[in-house]
Design a protein around this nucleic acid. Structure first.
Lengths: 209, 209, 209, 209
DNA sequence: AATGAATGAGCTTTCATTCAT
DNA sequence: CATGAATGAAAGCTCATTCAT
């Protein structure tokens, strides 16, 4: 039940605050282990071994195991959402904005931060209420961008249902890709973005040609 | 972090093999606790307390905690898939068959077996490889029904992308509903089924009028 | 710094609730170890070893190490104070009552419960505020008996200072005996009781002839 | 259980070797923390924080945490005993000498060095045998003064019991004052000295008028 | 079948001490 | 002298599982 074959830390991607500082190295290792083994099944000794330090040393950088988990989530959100917000600035039409959001969310899940994003979804309940709130606050702005974009499209009759519900269905379709999408397969990320766009705007051809 | 306010067992739904036998009562309690607390964070003592027996007694019915988890999953699959297969028998067109599959999967996730289905998704990694295989074998027939139906629709040009990928996106959208759908809200299960149908068959109006 | 040479449990006295039940055996061992090593320097593994069980098994009987400490204190108080109260019933004069209190307190400190009473004094600060209150409540009745008796003697001019202060000085003199009194020496417990009486009632000869 | 509200170092009294040198500041802080939290429950980080340095820096001044403890005790003894010895020089009669000893011991316990003296009593067992011996050697001269004085008084029939035992009872009564005496209350240190004198010399009036 | 005391390995976290800078 | 990251042994406590009754 316990996955013992670990990547070496060098194979785990570096991005944003998850750099080569001691703190960053711990967070990268944690994102990986929490993803493949689960948070509860990952011991601080597992984590320390992968980082290459003693387990006691972890507590110089983080006050508790939970603080490591919440930091993984916060860094993942910060890194991805800031990138997406930048791209949103340059998108003019609601259609373009939707594509930015879909592609951005797919990239966050399927790219280098995928493991951290997966942890964000699957280990949510491992967080105390206080920590959940810290993370929720970070998400708010991002989710508002989605709802605003889908509402614009709704006024154009491009989206057939209320923004809130439609966002939820799309969020599920996108989140689930982590379970089956393989970057080395025939389906490119562009192709996948197109597929989700087709789901999001059913009568796409009427609007986009 | 630990949810201590527990339903009483009487509030947890009875269905199929999760009846009022000792075994059934354990599985119902387990589905509930594994759903709200997670498998790792649920102790056998938590489980025994909710069932109203001593923790040692659990091991007369199940050989291990993992066996309880895998049984929850198996019973959930057996109960839901057999019901869906029956309904499929009576559906003539691929469109009707798709609607049966979508409504059936939504019911399994949002109805009385919802907690067990959620456990099936979220605690998958807690299973050893052997147990995962036992469950996968049960799922095969069911997934084949989905692929066959979507392929039929693909030949009618009603579905724009390969069945495998399309099934995955729909599976995600449906699975995710457990996170946000509230039966007491304004959206009925019929309404939700319609929304997912709209995603599944983008140019629905051309085919279904 | 750590005392490693331990008595065997059989040498540690049995009294009251500290009987041969599992709970009683833990409390007797704890009183001994907390006395000779101190509470903080005694590990639950030390304690379990002396009892002859595994360290995890301690937590079937007590919810925490602190709960063991507070139980040692409570049982010591209950056992000694009830014995003293019984003897007080049969003492007619305030002089006789004072002698009962002095002898009783000396016996509690120098007799079989001496280690537990010492723990009560010396490990007081190891207790959380809540646990301190639990113990204080038990002590109240007993201390009231002392004050009442000394006040009676004050009205007879046998005690030259206010009861509160006099009690405190005597309490110190008595408590301190655990540091130097040796039952195998020439001074008997009766003799020691006489000495403390002489301190308590300076012009004793005027009253007691 | 852990006291976190700390005095600032400025409030902790300066005396003797516990001056404003780095070494003195550590010892003053240690006396305070060891007194209110206990030696074991005080971490070197607690101590360093109160002093205003980093924990590693403590080890430039003291070779170990135990060395800090033993130094607190030694300085307390040296400072108080030298002061008392000076006063003894000027006391002519055994009665006067006894009063000097009682007042001096009360001052050491209730005055600026009270916390250090309390540590001397209550953390004695935290010392290794070697360190205990170092401190015992310092005490010897002082205790000899007590015994000699009480023996003189015994020859005058002013003290009714052997000096050794009487000293022990008085030592307890005096030591215990730290638990209940409040300098801001109605009882002055002179008054308290009188009370202990009354205990020490029961038929005081016959000798002192 | 059911009990519940006992197990014992393993968990997260603490902390005095070291040492390169 | 001072720093503060790192150490690593040991702490209190948890918990799935066993088994005599």
């Amino acid at each position: 039940m316990k996955v013992r074959k670990l990547k070496s830390l060098a194979e785990i991607p570096v991005m944003g605050a998850l750099d080569d500082s001691p703190r960053g190295r711990v967070l990268r290792a944690a994102a990986h282990l929490f993803h493949v083994q689960g948070y509860e099944r990952t011991t601080v000794r597992d984590l320390a071994r992968l980082v290459g330090i003693q387990s006691g040393s972890l507590f110089h950088h983080f006050s508790s195991k939970e603080e490591i988990l919440v930091s993984v989530m916060e860094e993942a959100i910060r890194y991805n959402f800031s990138r997406i917000q930048e791209n949103l600035q340059q998108a003019q039409s609601p259609f373009a904005r939707l594509e930015v959001l879909i592609r951005g969310e797919l990239e966050s899940i399927l790219g280098p931060t995928g493991e951290a994003m997966s942890v964000l979804v699957y280990e949510w309940d491992a967080l105390s209420a206080d920590c959940q709130q810290r993370v929720l606050t970070l998400r708010e702005v991002y989710e508002a961008s989605w709802l605003q974009t889908l509402e614009s499209l709704g006024q154009l009759h491009a989206v057939p249902y209320p923004a809130f519900f439609w966002r939820r269905l799309l969020a599920g379709a996108i989140a689930w890709t982590s379970h089956w999408y393989r970057p080395e397969g025939s389906l490119t990320l562009d192709g996948l973005t197109g597929m989700v766009m087709a789901m999001a705007i059913p009568k796409q051809s009427e609007y986009l040609n």
